[in-house]
Amino acid sequence: MGDPSSTQEVLRAPLTIGYDFKRTTGPVIGAFFTALAEHRVLAIRDTRSRVLCPPVEYDPDSGDPLTEMLEVRPEGTVTTWSWVSTIREGQPLQEPHALAMIRLDGADTSMLHVIDCGSPEAISTGARVRIRWSAEPAEGFANIECFELLEEDRDG
């Protein structure tokens, strides 16, 4: 029997537990993802005429099904953000970046995404950003590589 006080000989190994879940998108998310593959962004109008982006299938207040999808702009405004300095595997950017809520022009709600802007000094609430599309065709949200600063429209 091994000496229990000795830990030198104890094994260690990486253990990865993962599964590729398949999700059916339904008509709303399916259209949203299709548009992203075409480098366009769709939103949906709710029962109080607010434009929700990303789109949802049912009204957040009443629960009624929503049916009117419309296009919004690939530029928008940062409504809140935090700085990510420690990068973990699988994150969209492999260098420090902002994680932000971004309200696209034409939408009344914000989407969560990353902004490639170098340092936390470069970003502020109100900053203007636009989508940087992924170089390769991808699935769903992965068509958006990240957002980047729109310097000319920068909100002081």
Partner: peptide, 13 residues
Amino acid sequence: QVRRVTEPATLVY
């Protein structure tokens, strides 16, 4: 129109 997507979920221990 997209009908299905793959959403991998992984934990590395």
